[in-house]
């Protein structure tokens, strides 16, 4: 299986006196998908922020591709795709201009063509020349997903990637994520309770984030019924 590409050990994160994550342990290998479920405010976004280096842990170690994410070099950043709660897209640039900009920043070859190809892949061909503020929330979410996957990263960190997506959108997102997994990328996704069963198709390792800790959801437990384990 090789070395883990994401390794979290004894991680605690506090905001002031409020504990958000406490002594979290987590490992992910290439080609694996981790789905982190939990209620609103349980710390899922904080976990993703910590993995991409935007939040500083109080204690413990975080290693992504063998490096502390806060000390990533430029070449390491190129190998990581991130999608956060907000889309990180310029609302007064068109869909094409946004993806083209990020393609250039990530050093992707043929940025214009690659950007357009990704716009087509997420089903936004007719909206390529629309500005982001003219897109619906679901369309913006599709574009944000394309932005995260554009440079074919080795580690993909996605905070609530299925939020605001309709059934087709979730299905499409799952196909793209499955494709990334199949080429060897490691993916960390978060989702709140009641997510679509389409996610099951990418065979994720499921973790429930409760009481500040990640608890693996056993496969046996998951077999009890379609997504019933999510409610336990």
């Amino acid at each position: 299986m090789g070395n883990p590409v994401v390794e979290v050990s004894d991680l605690s994160v506090l905001f002031g006196l409020k504990v958000v994550l406490y002594r979290v342990e987590f490992k992910l290998y290439p080609g694996q998908v981790a789905l982190i479920v939990g209620a609103n405010g349980s710390g899922k976004s904080t976990f993703v922020h910590t993995l991409c280096g935007l939040t500083t842990p109080r204690s413990g170690t975080v290693r992504v591709l063998g490096t502390d994410p806060r000390k990533f070099s430029r070449s390491e950043r190129r190998r990581i795709g991130v999608m956060l709660h907000k889309s990180m897209l310029y609302s007064k640039l068109t869909a094409q201009e946004n993806l083209e900009l990020y393609a250039r920043l990530y050093g992707v070859s043929e940025p214009q063509q690659r950007a357009f190809r990704w716009i087509e892949r997420v089903g936004l061909r007719s909206a390529a020349e629309l500005m982001v503020h003219q897109l619906s929330r679901g369309m913006e979410q599709r574009l944000a997903l394309a932005r995260a996957l554009l440079a074919e990263p080795e580690v993909v960190l996605l905070d609530e990637p299925f939020a605001a997506l309709d059934e087709d959108g979730v299905n499409l997102a799952c196909e793209l994520l499955k494709e990334a997994r199949d080429r060897g990328a490691a993916l960390v996704l978060t989702s709140h309770e009641g997510s679509s069963p389409f996610i099951g198709a990418i065979e994720p390792l499921v973790f429930r984030l409760t009481q500040y800790r990640l608890h693996p959801v056993e496969r046996e437990n998951r077999r009890r019924g379609p997504w019933r384990w999510m409610l336990t």
């Binding site: 991409c52 430029r74 190129r78 920043l105």
Partner: peptide, 8 residues
């Protein structure tokens, strides 16, 4: 954040 996380 998009800029901070990018390799720029």
């Amino acid at each position: 954040k998009g800029l901070i996380l990018s390799p720029v």
